[in-house]
Each structure stands twice: as C-alpha cells, then as structure tokens.
C-alpha cells in the first residue's frame, strides 16, 4: 500500500495545535478522513504552477484605512456578562502553564 498522506502522529500534533482532544477511535477515523481529502488534493500536482502568482484575495483592493478617530466602545458590564467567568472587571481564566510565546 502507498504511504498515507497523513499519519496518526501528525493528526495528534495538529489536534494539539488546534486545542482539540481525540479519542483513540476518533484518531483513527479522522486520520482516514483527512487522508482522503489530502489524497484528493494531490490531483493538483498534475498542474504546472511554477511562476503562478498565489491569489489570497479575490478582489485587488489596496490601502483601505480609517481615520484615527475614537469610535463607540462597549459597556464593560455588558461585555463581562457574556464572559464564562469574571472578577474585578477582568476575564478570569484558570492557571496558565507556560509563558506567552
């Protein structure tokens, strides 16, 4: 059999990057499914793409800016009302392990 386009190890890594947890069963299923999509994506290899400029935006706009003027801000109580947990006017989160990159 040909090598799989993506391994379980890679899916585990990707799930970690995306802050998702997979059960063993899910790992197998997702690996197969992602593999199928990536396999399909390989048909692009038939195309001659050297020198083709990548296209990130559908519409070629440039220099869209706004003036440095103060706009509407939100009421703190309303914002914190929607928060899962808050304290002292701030959003509360559990203990952080690890520094900011």
């Amino acid at each position: 059999m040909m090598t799989e386009p993506i391994s379980e190890k890679e899916v585990t890594h990707v799930a970690h990057l995306a802050r998702l947890r997979l059960s063993d069963d899910e790992l197998g299923i997702f690996t197969r499914q992602l593999g199928a999509v990536l396999e399909h994506a390989k048909d692009v290899e038939a195309l001659q793409l050297d020198g083709v400029e990548p296209m990130s935006h559908p519409f070629p706009l440039e220099n869209v800016t706004r003036e440095d003027e103060v706009g509407e801000m939100l009421d703190r109580d309303k914002v914190l009302d929607q928060a899962p947990a808050a304290e002292d006017g701030r959003f509360q989160v559990p203990q952080i392990l690890g520094d900011q990159p």
């Binding site: 706004r66 801000m73 939100l74 703190r76 006017g89 701030r90």
Partner: peptide
C-alpha cells in the same frame, strides 16, 4: 478599531467587538 489607546485606564473599558 476606534477604541481609545491609553495607558492606565480601568480594565476592559477601552474595548469594542
């Protein structure tokens, strides 16, 4: 965004969507 850029204000008062 149009939120005020200012040091030292009450927390979460210079915020918007």
């Amino acid at each position: 965004c149009g939120c005020v850029n200012q040091f030292g204000d009450e927390p979460n008062t210079n915020v918007c969507p």
